[in-house]
Amino acid sequence: MTDGWNIVVCVKQVPDADDVSIDPETGRLNRSDAEAVMNAPDYNAVEAALELRDEVGGTVTALSMGPPNADAVLRVAVGMGADDGVLLSDPAFGGSDTWPTSLALARAAEELDADVVFGGEETTDSSTGQVPPGIAAHNGWAQLTYVEELESRPEEDKLVAKRDVEGGYERVAAELPVVVAMGFGENDPRPAGLHRKIYAETDFEPETWTAEDLGIEDEVGLAVSPTQVGGMDTADPVPREQEVVDETDELAEQIAEVL
């Protein structure tokens, strides 16, 4: 592996969490005016991918499945330093839950001959954390989730991760190819360089692949998604007194009452 590793990083476009609201009249979600941004945990995934490339050499390709305008998140990744980007976009993907989503990303990662696939801890819009393990499972590859630190062993074709586990941590060595889900906030994502950013926003054009390009046109979309949304209820906010007191003693008396 003298040319370094083929590193793929999965980034998703999500509505800006601060902008999504529920219309109090209709009970419907107001997502329309929410700005589309890159999923916050995916910045950590991109940073980890770039750090690994700096260490072992090779290329970083950003990969996203989404509507045509999701090319914006690929531009964010390229601005940060990714070498290239591929968009999986096709009406056939519509309504896909995590099973077909991870299938499409898995097939694309295979197509890109990936040695390491990075993802974020979870998305802020669907927050399942299932997609990276799903990619690994579809391809029969190793997976490392909730990763805090990475150590590459190119001479053995292995990647070692320090993972956060309940009550502590573990260090796990995985054979390539491997899917890594970085823990949210575990590194400091670099800002986009000025020239890189201009390139990403002007000259850079991602390739777009369809379901047919990946040979999975019958295996994606709503029809093959095992889970379906059966209904959506607005969650009633818990009623609170919302009383602000001036003196600590008053607060203490309220606490004493509860005790």
Binding site: W99, G134, A137, H138, Q143, T145
Partner: peptide, 15 residues
């Protein structure tokens, strides 16, 4: 979650 995400795929389970 590491386990669930892994096993849902080969069993084609709804997770």
């Amino acid at each position: 979650r590491d386990f669930a995400g892994r096993v849902a795929v080969p069993t084609h389970a709804g997770l």
